[in-house]
């Protein structure tokens, strides 16, 4: 079956299997930031934004995005022009192996849309579904708080 949706601002009209996951579709379309960790919704590294809200692409049937907006990390920033959240993760040293980072950044992006001035506890609460096995989370929370500060100072595009 064919579906139409918007991926990182660009229209897509693509063939999908009715029982395929959004994760599988996005990787076929070259969005390699979207990773399969557990495949059961526990780890959070496949997180993408659907209509601006975080969802697990591994548990989302691809046809569900028909007519909707999907954002992956590729839609947030590039190597040449990183998003402030990406810069904050570098600045704070919040990346080690990097496997969880796309999901962390997209979830943090949604948090800061909802709540531009979160407490460290609120950051931890919002990121509870995103697992990192390297950092111990301290620097990830620091990075999100730094990005939030930059956002409040008007440094976000």
């Amino acid at each position: 079956m064919k579906i139409y949706f918007e991926l990182n601002g660009k229209p897509q009209y693509v063939e999908v299997e009715a029982g395929e996951s959004l994760l599988s579709l996005l990787r076929r379309l070259g969005m390699k930031s979207v990773k399969e960790g557990c495949g059961t919704g526990e780890c959070g590294t496949c997180t993408v934004l659907l209509e601006g809200k975080p969802v697990r692409s591994c548990l989302t049937f691809a046809p569900k995005v028909q007519g909707k907006r999907v954002t992956t990390l590729e839609g947030l920033g590039t190597l040449e022009d990183p998003h402030p959240l990406q810069r904050a993760f570098v600045e704070a040293g919040a990346v080690q192996c990097g496997f969880c980072t796309p999901g962390m950044i997209l979830t943090a992006y949604a948090l800061l849309q909802e709540n531009p001035d979160p407490t460290p506890h609120e950051v931890r609460e919002y990121l509870v579904g995103n697992l990192c096995r390297c950092t111990g989370y301290v620097k990830i929370v620091d990075a999100v708080l730094l990005a939030a500060q930059w956002k409040r100072e008007g440094q976000w595009r």
Binding site: G44, L50, K53, P54, R56, L59, A110, Y126, G129
Partner: peptide, 9 residues
């Protein structure tokens, strides 16, 4: 219950 991304689904 779960976490924000799952509660959105």
């Amino acid at each position: 219950v779960a976490y924000p991304a799952l509660r959105n689904m």
